[in-house]
Amino acid sequence: MNIQSTNLQATRVDLLLMSEMVHPGSRVLDVGCGDGTLLRILSETRDVDARGIELQQSGVNQCVARGLSVVQGDADTDLVNYPDNAFDFAILSQTIQATRRPRDVLEQLLRIGKHVIVSFPNFGHWRVRSQIMFAGRMPVTENLSFSWYDTPNIHFCTIKDFRAMCDELDAKVERSVALNAQGQRLGVNIPDFMQNLLGQQAIFLLSR
């Protein structure tokens, strides 16, 4: 898919929601940017100065060939190189559960970015709960399709867990959005425990 042919309608809802949180014209770092889909959306729709870090070299090379500014790097080790407040938005999209030290990573992001956007799969979703409860097996779902022994996702959390960590880090939750299994956004006024039960994934906008 090249930049011209990007069909924003068909793009994942979570990516669109995240891009809407980003102020036009701002400086953005996408940590774990994969093939650069979010970077491309941000460049096209928000006119941002967007950079990315990606662990997989093949993803990096694809991104650069498409004209995106991406470096190969590891969220766990390389964020320390960036100066304080270097970016208006630091984004961690569907990556935190694959980091070795999620708390340190989030702390670094809050240092580098004036705002931090984190999206992650919610391990508190009722399907996940029921798989452990009734099947007695580690959950394997559409979103989390790995077996326990080969999953790159080594640090799962629930929405409630994530909120607790934000509290520990004194991070201010400016917005939180949960998406259901169909990728639809749950109501804004839904209570936290329902968000944690029905949300298959969550997006948080944080600031320090």
Binding site: R27, D49, R51, Q57, V60, N61, C63, V64, L68, S69, V70, V71, Q72, G73, D78, N81, Y82, P83, A86, F87
Partner: peptide, 15 residues
């Protein structure tokens, strides 16, 4: 690249 990141430069890095 790390030095460039340290000054928040716009950098790509391909290996």
């Amino acid at each position: 690249v790390q030095a460039l990141n340290a000054v928040a430069a716009n950098v790509s890095f391909v290996e």
